[in-house]
Design a protein around this nucleic acid. Structure first.
Lengths: 124, 124
DNA sequence: CTCACCTACAACCATTTGGTGGTAGGTTAG
DNA sequence: CTAACCTACCACCAAATGGTTGTAGGTGAG
């Protein structure tokens, strides 16, 4: 039992969303700032609709959330969602690492001061 | 090997290769075992050529290696490569962790340590 | 109200992807 | 040698992706 919350489709969407440099840049921008979609769009050499689609892909993957503020939609990166991608990698690795190694990884994570500000929630 | 040498293209290839359930399953199989391409192909409800393409995608991403043994090509998962994907996620996270940390410091020094949703113009 | 702006959504197009089959070359067995 | 097998590579096709433009609706300012 590893990532019970993450279905194969969810992992597909997660990695697919991450497999694009524009989308990864959007993630960086919307983690440091909280721009509207149109302001985001001005940062890239493509149309507003194209950026809108990228944001939609990220939103479907659960990597960003949108918050209505007036006539704008503020986009913000869900920091914990990247933790879900990490869990998907853990799940992959656990296959060939075995349970003992996995447990030691958990122990190592416990002894080290991991980030507390980004709670890794399996619930999406 | 320094891992900071991950180019954007490399990250693209990594995540794209991981964004497919068949390819992820191939990774699991070829980490536990070291099957030939044809034996691998028999495990999936698709043609040999299709599986061959999936293996090629994984190989280009550096996730598996092929070893010639007679007339066969044994496929094996490069365990360290998944670590590279993890580092790509680390890179993503570190970007905004640093910036968020800096912004928090600025906010703490200047005004109340609340979110930046506090009044922007006027004091309300 | 009008005007400007932001957003969502549709239609459309070029390219890529994921699948198919077929063919050619190399290797092991008989 | 022939036969059987494994692999690489080709052409082809349907579907998805990434981009474009255009249109319609909602919101804020004057």
């Amino acid at each position: 039992m590893v990532v019970g919350e993450l279905t194969e489709d969810a992992v597909d969407g997660l990695f697919h969303a991450l497999a694009d440099p524009t989308r990864r840049d959007i993630l960086r921008r919307c983690a440091a700032d909280e721009p509207s979609v149109s302001r985001l769009a001005r940062a890239y050499p493509m149309s507003f609709a194209a950026v809108q689609k990228h944001v939609a892909v990220l939103e479907r993957a659960g990597l960003v959330t949108k918050e209505s503020r007036g006539r704008e939609q503020l986009v913000r990166t869900d920091v914990g969602a990247v933790g879900r991608a990490r869990l998907a990698l853990d799940d992959l690795e656990s296959t060939w690492r075995g349970r003992v190694d996995r447990m030691s990884a958990l122990l190592a994570a416990g002894t080290e001061p991991e980030r507390k500000t980004s709670t890794i929630r399996g619930t999406g």
